[in-house]
Write a protein that binds this DNA or RNA. Sequence first.
DNA 1: AGACCTTACGGCCGGCGTAACAATA
DNA 2: TATTGTTACGCCGGCCGTAAGGTCT
Lengths: 280, 280
Amino acid sequence: MLELYLLRQLAAFKEYGTLSEAAERLYLSQPALSRNMRKLEDEIGVPLFVRSRNKLELNENGRLTAALAEKALSEIDSIAKQVRDFDRSRRTISLGVCAPAPTWKLTPLLSQLYPTMTIRTEIAEEPELLDGLHSGQYQLIVLHFQPEDPHYISSACGTEKLFFSLPPTHRLAKSASLSFSDLDGESFLLMSEIGFWHDMTVRKKPHSRFLIQNDRLTFDEIVNASVLPSFTTDTANAFFASSSDRAEIPISDEEAEVRYFLVCLKKHEQQFRQLFEACN
Amino acid sequence: MLELYLLRQLAAFKEYGTLSEAAERLYLSQPALSRNMRKLEDEIGVPLFVRSRNKLELNENGRLTAALAEKALSEIDSIAKQVRDFDRSRRTISLGVCAPAPTWKLTPLLSQLYPTMTIRTEIAEEPELLDGLHSGQYQLIVLHFQPEDPHYISSACGTEKLFFSLPPTHRLAKSASLSFSDLDGESFLLMSEIGFWHDMTVRKKPHSRFLIQNDRLTFDEIVNASVLPSFTTDTANAFFASSSDRAEIPISDEEAEVRYFLVCLKKHEQQFRQLFEACN
DNA sequence: AGACCTTACGGCCGGCGTAACAATA
DNA sequence: TATTGTTACGCCGGCCGTAAGGTCT
């Protein structure tokens, strides 16, 4: 059977045009390449080259062979990668979420229920989450609505309510309740990687500007040191008790409180049965 | 990159189940195979086997790898074949005919006009000829009707008229003309490999039986030695003068005389221009 | 002269076989 | 005991590099 090193060398010769150049790219002596091209020709049994006295070119057979070789080589190349990906996917649970809060409860739970598995978490938009669930990119996703498709298994897994976080000096710091529009136009401090909350706050306050910070500790410091309004949620407060003198004002819009739903494909129902029972 | 011998050996192990058996089939010592399977595992970097103390089995990764390997190996295997076929097709003109007579003139003509090419002739049914022309199986075909599709180039290339060949003692040997139906029911001697003539004669004499002989010399001998009716044609007589005392009676059915048409695809018009000019 | 390809010769590495061992049924 | 898989050691074929030679621009 044709050996790979011959096909690789043919492909390189096709790419670089001369034996010398190809040999150099292959870290191979030029005579070796010359010999091997003749050997390949012998093995296939038909001429692959037109040979002038000091010039070597592919003929039609040679071009066909090189094209087929490139295809086969890339296929062989991809085998190891495919197997490694497959192996990783078998020992990994990928969790896609529409916001960070659900992971605070789910990640420890997953680690405990499936101690041999690696838990990978990703924040994405809801349409991408659903696509990824079907493509196998995610085995589990968390949405902030309940999907209706009967191919899914889903179950509520917590709520989250958004609050304004205002400095005591803010003119509205004593309010019992505020709506998004009450603070439209003011500049806000905002965490990055907060999933759908980002879109929602930006959409509900079209005239505000948002200063994005991607590290939570830094964010907390900046919040405490500034007089800009920001956000917090009941869930975040429960998990990350941060001392601050800020006023936390409930947001009256109904979108400010969401329910999360954990979703998996029906075919994985067995695998995740314990998880669904535990997260209720 | 993964080397082919490792993939071949993995595929063999998958096929035969044990290292010993696979090694034997591969004409390889069993320790060598053991080493190489470990090497493959190392190179891919994930476990491919479940190892008991004296048992080796593929795990899921291994089964995937073996499946991918089989695919890649068969692809590599097919490269040489594809290139050889391509090379042969480049130096061969394949002529498909609906009956043998046209080849008697065309084959010498082709050899003369295209002296570097191999001429290959095949008899086939007309639908297969047209399919083969499109698929590239034939560059030229001969039909006994003129195709209407404008994608073809076609030109008349001779006629052939069928005769009954009757022993002098036959009751109808003196007839000036006969129709197919006049001899329906009698047993006939018939050559094989005569293309559409076979179907036609069988169809026109549904009550006759036909004794098939595939060698022309043998056929001629049998014909001369027997009193069974057979067939001949004007074209065959012109090319193969066979002495015989048989009566040759024209067949009056209009299907008994055909015109042949040489056909090629328009894209080959240039290549075969000389041929079309010469065969008129 | 410089670029390119081919042929000739010797070295060396990698894959193989033999041998010896361990474990299971 | 027969079968299966693993480890250790030395051989050898095949691929490579160096050197030398020929041809073309």
